[in-house]
Amino acid sequence: MPELQTYRRQNRYDNNSKLLSGRSMDKDNQPVPHEHLEKMIALVANQRDKQAFGVLFKFFMPKIRSFGMQKLGHQGLAMDLVQETMQNIWTKSHLYNGDKGAVTTWVYTIMRNRCFDMLRKIQHNREDTFGDDIWPIFESDESIDTQQDNDPLMSNLLMQHLEQLPLAQRQVVKGIYLQELSQQELAEKLNIPLGTVKSRLRLGLEKLKSFLEKHHD
């Protein structure tokens, strides 16, 4: 795992972490530093520590990506899976409970659940969020639920509101939901970073949601 090693050299936690030196590490075939991962999660949870998140990112990203390639068979989708899984780790780290399982189990659960929901979306065009109810570890964020399925009135309303979004957000929401592009592809098409696609999408969906809530009042 050269990436982890490279990172280790730069990592400020290394110097004050006895956990790493306490275990006999074979340089070529390291055992997984579970305690180290736990410590990184705790730093993210308690201090919103970006550098600790960077460590987790470097460690898990290649594995999530190859899992994504294997299950989803598409580079762009695998990237989406990396983004979604890592985002869940950042926003839900305070819900991780070391008594209930290893960090790897927690991350695997998140990754598998997101992947399951993505497969449902691709195969059945369903915007489902089943994964976290079927294999619960923590509650999922169901920002947009399935109520607009098969509801022409709701669809019309959504289309009207969609036109009211700022151009940048509208492009992204339409690209993902109407043209069914992957986020990676949309990023390439619009020539903007993937992260920007994500944040525009999130802002756009939040705005749509608030339009709908207002409408119902």
Partner: peptide, 29 residues
Amino acid sequence: NCTDDSNGDEIDLQDDWSTMIDDITALPP
């Protein structure tokens, strides 16, 4: 499980990854 091409494109993708990390870490819990 991480022996695909991840070592090769690590450098090329550095900017993308850091953008992704910045974006994620801007989000609230």
